[in-house]
């Protein structure tokens, strides 16, 4: 069973390699103008060059930094606000509908407002990323708090636990699967908004890099940037699922 799994994986990699080869052929025979489509060889060479000169690494670090700070701020604020709103039924009836109303708003529409308030600055980017990433986390926290098994609250009452103790010992752990799912969703949002803010504000990062490369028609550099963005998205989501797995291991063993 295990070996067939590995064989399938290998075959799947072979198919992916086939697609890369096809891409190379298309580029070699110039079926698509090389201005738009560099071969994988040129994109790879650009990646290697960018990393050995440190250029690309600095851009990558910039994007990851924007994304991480905004996302962490959103996580802390989202969980805190979600806990406050979710743990009080009265807050839920008064506040939650407004939040549900705001949820379908395309968050990027807040960018012009943030630019008007904060200018084309790092602070603007962090505000936008945090604002966009907070929604999934906050709503998931509210939902998780509302869905806590009522008997657990009864136990807490009979043990005369303080409100804070209830939040930290009962509500937060039992809402953690929801919260982590929200945080995972937010990661994608944070990456996209980081790229958009870098494009708009010219902040140091991959977003700005790919835009400059496109403007200068340096398609190899452009593809190198896009590949790196894909890798960033992939690595962060894998890291998040590993963290999720770790943090929720106690729940799986309970069931």
């Amino acid at each position: 069973m295990k070996t067939t799994g590995i064989l399938w994986r290998l075959a799947s990699f072979a198919v992916a390699a086939g697609f890369v080869a096809l891409w190379q052929l298309i580029a070699n025979f110039k079926l698509v103008s090389p201005v738009f489509l560099p071969g994988p060889d040129r994109a790879w060479a650009s990646l290697v060059r960018g990393f050995s000169s440190g250029d690309l690494l600095a851009k990558l670090a910039g994007t990851v930094e924007h994304m991480a700070y905004g996302w962490l701020a959103a996580s802390i604020a989202g969980i805190a606000l979600g806990a406050v709103i979710g743990s009080s039924p009265r807050m839920r009836t008064y506040v939650a509908p407004s939040l549900e109303f705001l949820r379908p708003l395309p968050v990027s529409a807040i960018i012009p407002v943030a630019i008007a308030m904060l200018g084309l600055t790092q602070a603007m980017a962090l505000f936008v990323i945090a604002f966009g990433a907070i929604w999934p986390i906050m709503l998931a926290t509210i939902h998780g708090f509302a869905a806590v098994e009522p008997r657990l609250y009864e136990v807490a009452r009979s043990l005369q636990m303080s409100k804070l103790a209830v939040i930290f010992k009962i509500a937060l752990p039992s809402a953690s699967p929801d919260i982590l799912a929200g945080m995972r969703l937010s990661l994608t949002v944070a990456l996209i908004l980081a790229v958009v803010c870098e494009i708009l504000a010219g902040l140091d990062g991959l977003g700005h890099w790919v835009l400059l490369s496109a403007r200068a028609f340096r398609s190899a550099d452009l593809f190198a940037g896009v590949i790196l963005l894909g890798v960033t998205g992939y690595v962060t989501s894998v890291a998040m699922s590993l963290a999720e797995h770790r943090l929720l291991a106690w729940q799986a063993s309970q069931r």
Binding site: S12, V15, V195, V196, G207, V210, G230, G233
Partner: peptide
Amino acid sequence: LMEVTVEAIRPIPSIALLPI
């Protein structure tokens, strides 16, 4: 067979395709 290909393309943030 397509698993690796799909998983390699999917995480690219859509907005990154904008310059292309």
